[in-house]
Simulated scan of single mutants.
Amino acid sequence: MPDLIPILGYADEAIIVLFVLRSVVRRTGLDTIRRHWPGSDDGFTALCRLTGLG
């Protein structure tokens, strides 16, 4: 969707990013992601919530 439509322009990109994150976490495993996670514990918790895993 073009960014001319204020909400939908960003929503499609967020959905694609969410789909890719979920796919990566499912393929590699949550333990592997946690081991290489450079961010904070709160950020990792947010990732788990967004991907619906963990």
Rank of each mutant, 00 (worst) to 15 (best):
M1Q: 09
M1G: 10
P2K: 12
P2A: 10
D3E: 06
D3P: 03
D3S: 02
L4K: 06
L4N: 03
I5C: 10
I5M: 14
I5A: 14
P6V: 00
P6A: 05
P6R: 01
P6W: 01
I7W: 02
I7V: 06
I7T: 04
L8Q: 05
L8M: 05
L8Y: 03
G9V: 04
G9Y: 05
G9D: 00
G9L: 00
G9T: 04
Y10R: 15
Y10L: 13
A11T: 10
A11F: 08
D12G: 06
E13R: 13
A14D: 05
A14W: 02
A14R: 07
I16H: 07
I16C: 04
I16P: 02
L18K: 14
L18N: 11
F19Q: 02
F19D: 03
V20H: 03
V20Q: 00
V20G: 01
V20P: 00
V20C: 04
V20S: 05
L21T: 06
L21E: 01
R22D: 01
S23C: 00
V24K: 06
V24E: 06
V25M: 15
R26V: 09
R27D: 10
T28A: 12
G29K: 09
G29Y: 12
L30A: 07
L30G: 01
D31L: 05
D31C: 01
D31E: 04
T32C: 07
T32R: 04
T32W: 04
I33L: 03
I33C: 00
R34T: 13
R34N: 10
R35L: 03
R35K: 09
H36N: 15
H36E: 15
H36L: 14
W37Q: 11
W37N: 12
P38Q: 03
P38F: 02
P38S: 04
G39Y: 12
G39T: 10
G39K: 11
G39S: 15
G39N: 08
G39E: 14
G39A: 14
G39Q: 12
S40F: 14
S40A: 12
D42K: 07
G43D: 07
G43M: 05
G43F: 07
F44R: 13
F44Y: 13
F44D: 12
F44K: 09
F44C: 14
T45C: 09
A46T: 07
A46L: 15
L47Q: 06
L47H: 06
R49D: 13
R49Y: 07
R49L: 12
R49F: 08
L50V: 04
G52I: 09
G52F: 09
G52M: 14
G54E: 02
